[in-house]
């Protein structure tokens, strides 16, 4: 309750930025980026997520504890994906049966 109130102007600007980034990611899709398509699209999605987290979910104004909770969640998701991909991507190395 002691959290500061974010002015409506900021909220509108953030929303505008989000819509702009959406247009940008669709625009990038039609450009010739080669293998960079997915990294670029994910980077833009990441930027949008950060905007929502910081302003709409006011992470910018909340305690370090909340941020640690979020980071822990992302770290664990990373562990899950990295550990499994370690197997999925190297399975062909030994067995020669990579699908």
């Amino acid at each position: 309750m002691s959290e500061p109130i974010i002015p409506t102007r900021t909220l509108f600007i953030v929303c505008g930025a989000l819509l702009l980034l959406t247009a940008l990611t669709i625009g990038a899709y039609f450009m010739d980026l080669g293998i960079l398509h997915t990294p670029v699209a994910l980077a833009i999605a990441g930027a949008k997520a950060v905007l929502i987290l910081l302003f709409f979910m006011h992470l910018r104004y909340s305690s370090g504890l909340t941020r640690i909770v979020l980071l822990a969640g992302l770290l664990w998701l990373g562990i899950l994906i990295l550990g499994t991909m370690d197997d999925a991507l190297t399975r062909g190395w030994v067995l020669g049966t990579a699908p």
């Binding site: 969640g73 998701l77 899950l80 994906i81």
Partner: peptide, 28 residues
């Protein structure tokens, strides 16, 4: 704070789906 913890569990729930996506997209 409880809501944030809940959202982290939701993140892991979707995370499993994102993992399946990653594996299969890497395969095919």
């Amino acid at each position: 704070f409880g809501m944030w913890i809940f959202l982290v569990t939701e993140l892991m729930l979707f995370g499993a789906l994102f993992l399946m996506y990653t594996v299969y997209r890497a395969f095919y």
